[in-house]
Amino acid sequence: MKHYVLVHGGCHGAWCWYKVKPMLEHSGHRVTVFDLTAHGVNMSRVEDIQTLEDFAKPLLEVLESFGSDDKVVLVAHSLGGIPAALAADMFPSKISVAVFVTSFMPDTTNPPSYVFEKFLGSITEEERMDFELGSYGTDDHPLKTAFLGPNYLKNMYLLSPIEDYELAKMLMRVTPAITSNLTGTKSLTAQGYGSISRVYIVCGEDKGIRVDFQRWMIENSPVKEVMEIKDADHMPMFSKPHELCDRLLKIADKYP
């Protein structure tokens, strides 16, 4: 029996794993899901997120609660990759493998925000549609929010069932944009985050984080293994849940 810890992406919540969680449990595994700060039904507000640690706090608490002998398969989607990487940096001995599912994946030479800021810089005006950036924080510590409007969201859910797109529209919440003001300028460490096994799952039809950007992140911070779900959009847990589970099961077997 393996123990999976599933981390959702920006504007989403634990709810996005509602298909994957029972599938993994049906295969006999333990699965922990949770809402990051100010996401899903977590009662905090985005204004409560002043640091990356604040954002990642529910995940850090989950990992902290496990015994020193426990090892988990940490699975992160999209923006969840950055708080997951922070958690891996803080608790490397508790992670057998970190799986980045069409996810932002930091390196160990730049601030953790680097890959996301590069992504923001690469969005064309045409692609932006109703992707909204907002501001919060103070003059001394300015922070940004991001929100996915229904059109941008539709692009992410292009190959997913319409009911899952409707579900998402009903549950979207403002997410912190992971800028260097939020993360600080220090990189994650080679002996922490850099020491764990990482696997990247490329989603071939992702219109949010395009394949070439996914490939660039892999080149920028090489992983142990790359897997692919060819026909998955940005949301493989909805568009290809069986294929995603199949790969997660294989990964867990391979990296004890």
């Binding site: 919540g13 634990a14 709810w15 794993w17 509602y18 298909k19 969680k21 029972p22 899901v33 899903g40 039904v41 579900l167 549950l171």
Partner: peptide, 11 residues
Amino acid sequence: VEDLELGLLLK
């Protein structure tokens, strides 16, 4: 079962 899961995650 997935809808029960959804309910448990959002209640």
